[in-house]
Design a protein around this nucleic acid. Structure first.
Lengths: 335, 335
DNA sequence: CTGAAAGCGCTTACAG
DNA sequence: CTGAAAGCGCTTACAG
């Protein structure tokens, strides 16, 4: 590949002049500009961003590390961050931690070494010494979706409590008091919050959430299947089940539709709702009630905060409320 | 951030020695190694990959530009490439062209400027001067999933013809001769191939595929909805419809399930099959027959070819066959 | 085994 | 308006 030097030689000018022309600096004569542009075109010159970055003007690159890129929620989140980044002239590099702390740290380390101008992380686990260190070393860091303890960085997350509260109100007032939860994994900061939101909403009706009505999965589809089998085996099926994320809900549905008893128990016997709204929920029969997260808004705000941090402005954590979509899967019994 | 120079100063040695220790070169004394490691730890030293890359040892980064990252097929494809890259010690940067040629070129240009060691592209359109130029300038380029004309680069793609042939055989021998196709957009190289595969399979049975039984969408869900409405309005519904990708099939299902006539026409009246197998197809009722692409294999092979190119080995294009999954949506009429 | 020095491709004060 | 020169952080022949 041709370099500035090559272009300078064919144009018969200095590399400094070539650099000025190609970076659109105003103080250059038209004659010089013309010579340089012709030479650049002749060489199919493409600037080397590595050289430029080393000089210290930043890399115009941000990193995004998500906990699981195959999860459609994170795919859409990544997409929102990417759109915002591209509009602002930044390139986004995504790393997929796949819910593995070592892999998360591998990406964080790699991205820092590549001198990204800032980093957005959906923490896989609640605690990471590397993230803590990065924040303390004044790296530009923004947390997204999930909190991470002792990491001094702003967090952009969704607030499920209002929507959960509306959902619980609806279930209880239509006769379902015996409500169970398929919660997310301990290590994910969101799992705990969502569980608490249900507990508080129930408490407002004077109801409690005993341990035998809480199952725990890992946010993947298979755990939805496994926990549902356990629930059916234990004959402890509640009247309504609130599933902490979308993919587990698919697993639940899959197992219910293959349950030993002919026919699906929905919605007659078991009302079902998910936190996290998937495209397909409207296609299934019964369609699935869900709490939709403000996904694109989350991504957009996270990038906004990061830009502010890079620009040295003060930033604060942000919480954005979710929306409840009532569908067939929570309709009251017909009796 | 601390640099090699800082570490050298505190260790009381030269930067060359620090570099040698930190890159695990063998010819260093234990005493020196110890001093350097201590100093590096003291500074929380993190090597600057930009400095290293400029020196000319490559960036250990590859770029992947996909035509639409929100399409689960490409998400999984990206994931497969990422896994292969990570295992080989490479970082992958994804760019999402969103089916827009200018955006594809933006990413290709940006990635080349950042000195990626190689580039894998799912071409949004059949032709791109920039891609052609990149290939001709000896950049390491591999095309994935879709061909691009006049671009001198190897292609890794899936071969649907066998699976389509099996599917058509099944439909015809079980009494469905009037077969229609919802094809993909002209600009995608795969769309044409898939349509031809159906045409050839039908020809083997002495059947043809007239223009009035071919609808054209853009691989997105909404176009599945729109074309289905057209089909219903025109009262030209065939006995079986083969949809060229998964998301359009979801749109078709959505519209059929809301069709004016009560009840879904599946599978009694209209057999449905998709090219591209989505997770949810097994959850829907009827479950949806699909031709599954060897997604992970495609991603893995593409990265393999790229590594070979980078290593200077000769590489050839690869085609990998698809697999047919017969499900309820193509079951013969019960009559 | 270790160090001094050159150089990767760029940008930007500093002169003129 | 233009050029010569320094320097970003690293690696690697070249000496010793």
């Amino acid at each position: 590949m041709a370099t500035l030097k090559d272009v300078a030689r064919t144009a018969g000018v200095s590399v400094a002049s070539v650099s000025r022309v190609l970076s659109n600096q105003p103080q250059v004569s038209d004659a010089l500009r013309e010579k340089v542009l012709a030479a650049a075109a002749h060489h199919s010159f493409r600037p080397n961003a590595v050289g430029r970055a080393l000089r210290g003007t930043g890399t115009r690159t941000i990193g995004l590390v998500v906990s699981d890129l195959l999860n459609p929620f994170f795919t859409e989140l990544a997409r929102a961050v990417e759109d915002a980044a591209r509009e602002a002239g930044y390139l986004m590099i995504v790393g997929n931690a796949d819910e593995r702390p070592e892999q998360q740290d591998l990406y964080v380390r790699t991205l820092l070494e590549r001198q990204v101008d800032g980093l957005i992380v959906v923490p896989t686990v609640e605690t990471s010494p590397l993230l803590r260190e990065a924040a303390d070393l004044e790296q530009h860091l923004v947390l997204l979706d999930r909190p991470a303890s002792e990491v001094h960085a702003p967090l952009v997350s969704s607030d499920t409590s209002d929507a959960v509260s509306q959902l619980v109100d609806y279930l209880v007032t239509t006769g379902r008091q015996n409500i169970g939860v398929l919660a997310g994994p301990q290590y994910a900061g969101t799992a705990h919050q969502r569980l608490e939101a249900v507990r508080e909403a129930l408490a407002r009706h004077g109801l409690d959430l005993p341990a035998e009505r809480v199952w725990v999965g890992d946010y993947k589809r298979d755990s939805g299947r496994a926990q549902t089998r356990r629930m059916l085996d234990e004959r402890t099926t509640p009247e309504a089940l609130l599933v902490s994320n979308g993919r587990m809900a698919l697993g639940v549905l899959d197992t219910l539709s293959h349950a030993p008893v002919e026919g699906s128990p929905l919605p007659g016997d078991l009302a079902l709702a998910a936190i996290d709204d998937l495209d397909v929920f409207t296609l299934l029969r019964p369609s699935v009630t869900a709490i939709a997260q403000p996904t694109r808004e989350l991504g957009r705000r996270a990038f906004g905060l990061l830009l502010d941090r890079i620009a040295g402005k003060p930033v604060e954590s942000v919480r954005i409320p979710c929306t409840l979509h009532l569908r067939e899967s929570t309709e009251p019994r017909r009796v």
